[in-house]
Design a protein around this nucleic acid. Structure first.
Length: 452
RNA sequence: UCCAGAGUAGCUCAGCUGGUUAGAGCACCUGACUGUUAAUCAGGGGGUCAGGGGUUCGAAUCCCCUCUCUGGAGCCA
């Protein structure tokens, strides 16, 4: 891997300790855990890159240093010097024999102990919970996922062209938006998708991707929803739906294989079954919406409706959108992602292109992840015909003035084009096996939580 | 938003059909210990039982209201 030459490289970090066996090093960090036994103290030191056991043996250090080591508490910050030694008794094979130790700050009453805690308590202390080893591993996987995404697109001739976060109008009129005042121009909204702007950029650059936060004021309270989440949205001129699906497969395969290669330790800490991830290789499964409905009915997965307060089970009707029950039933049979494509037009957004084979369908696709990973990608070929798009905007009662620029794209050199959005958090949740989506973003924003 | 569940020590929880001064483990403080890694052993401090109202001789326990939190649904990535 290429690295940048800098003076910071000369610092010694725990992840590089194996290069320093037999020599003296200085480490800076925090006490992750400490145990003692009379004349012997064991400090689990973490420095952000890893954890190593440091041994303080009374005869080896001065009286003051031993007293300082004895007084250390969880999450106290310190600088220590010691010899790096291979030791089979250490979980990482390496240990530090401490010769000197300086306390930067002695911590009192660190709230997160090695014992169990409730979700609510940990979320209140998210700013500290980030230091715990599983949370630390998850955020490192997140970082790797983002790097994989950038490498993939940059290496395939895409340009990153960012979309605005403050927007004048709704992209998909259906979902709820966060509204804010915008000087004398009235209201602005936090973006719920960069797609429309990505389309404009694709007409300028061919293949582009936008990467940024998106905001949805939906009143959803589940473990796969955030009100602020990150999304990467590629958009490609001259791509049809099949090209779009191929690209989505390539991307997801690349991300998973990258994480398997670069995050072995993290996946181990997270106790992730990597044999399941190793199966994520092209080609993925594909089925049309209509095939999926047939499958549901052949396998007796009904839809449950409430009529007069009573729950009634009915066969799944063609034209209805899938809920969590249907998605999970379909995915149970698959050991790698599945793309479902060609949905009924009435359950999908206005900008999606009609299927020339069947006007009731749109050229849309969703990718569902196995192991209850849920929907990680939603995409489509876009409507590129001026009149067809205008018709759809009117049908949805969207403000025509706001979409004038978007219609312009169909007026000046319109071409077939496609794109999709991949949710970073849902992807990281699936890959890490995290229980809740709030664990895969450093500071989650949810319907009832905006602290810390 | 709708449905369901929860709130007792810093944390995780027990506390029965109402009955003396509210309990445990961990964390914290003091001491012992040369191989711990959720160390062990001995001792110690720590409570507005979410808040308010009601029933009762008596409420953590029963009833009502409010607040907070958790999970699920719909919608979505």
């Amino acid at each position: 891997m290429g690295t940048i030459n800098s003076r910071y490289k000369s610092y010694c970090y725990i992840e590089n300790l194996s290069q320093f066996v037999g020599s003296e090093v200085t480490l800076r960090g925090w006490v992750y855990h400490k145990t003692g036994k009379g004349k012997l103290h064991f400090i689990q030191l973490r420095d952000g890159t890893g954890i190593v056991q440091c041994v303080v043996f009374k005869p080896n250090v001065s009286e003051e240093v031993f007293e300082r080591a004895k007084s250390l508490t969880q999450e106290s910050s310190l600088i220590l010097k010691g010899y790096v030694r291979e030791d089979p008794r250490s979980p990482v094979g390496i240990e530090i024999d401490v010769s000197d130790l300086q306390v930067i700050q002695l911590t009192n009453d660190y709230p997160i102990t090695p014992k169990e805690h409730g979700d609510s308590f940990l979320m209140e202390h998210r700013h500290l919970w980030l230091r715990s080893s599983k949370q630390h591993a998850i955020i490192r996987v997140r970082s790797a996922v983002i790097k994989a995404i950038r490498d993939f697109f940059d290496g395939n001739g895409f340009k990153q062209v960012d979309s605005p976060i403050l927007t004048p109008n709704a992209c998909e009129g259906t979902t709820t938006l966060f509204e804010t005042k915008y000087f004398d121009l009235g209201s602005a909204y936090l973006s719920q998708s960069g797609q429309l702007y990505a389309e404009a950029s694709a007409m300028a650059h061919g293949k582009v991707y936008t990467f940024g936060p998106t905001f949805r004021a939906e009143l959803s309270k589940t473990r796969k929803h955030l009100t602020e989440f990150w999304m990467v949205e590629p958009e490609m001129a001259f791509f049809d739906l099949d090209d779009d699906m191929d690209l989505a497969e390539d991307l997801v395969e690349y991300i998973v294989q990258y994480v398997l290669k670069h995050c072995k330790k993290e996946l181990e800490i997270l106790e992730r079954d990597i044999t399941k991830l190793e199966k994520v290789r092209r080609p993925f499964y594909r089925m049309t919406y209509t095939e999926a409905v047939d499958w549901l009915n052949r396998n007796n997965v009904p839809i449950i409706r409430k009529v007069d307060g009573k729950e009634i089970e009915e066969p799944f009707p063609w034209g209805e959108d899938f809920g969590a029950v249907q998605e999970e039933a379909i995915m149970e049979q698959f050991d790698k992602p599945c793309i479902i494509h060609r949905y009924p037009a009435k359950v999908k957004a206005f900008y999606m292109k009609r299927d020339p084979q069947n006007p009731e369908l749109v050229l849309a696709m969703d990718m569902l992840a196995p192991e209850r990973g849920g929907e990680i990608i939603g995409g489509s070929q876009r409507e590129d015909d001026y009149n067809a798009l205008l018709e759809r905007i009117k049908e949805e009662n969207l403000p025509l003035e706001a979409f004038q620029w978007y219609l312009d794209l169909r007026k000046y050199g319109s071409v077939p084009h496609s794109g999709f959005g991949l949710g970073i958090e849902r992807t990281v949740k699936w890959i890490t096996g995290a229980r809740h989506i709030r664990e895969v973003i450093p500071f989650p924003r949810m319907i009832y939580r905006i602290y810390p």
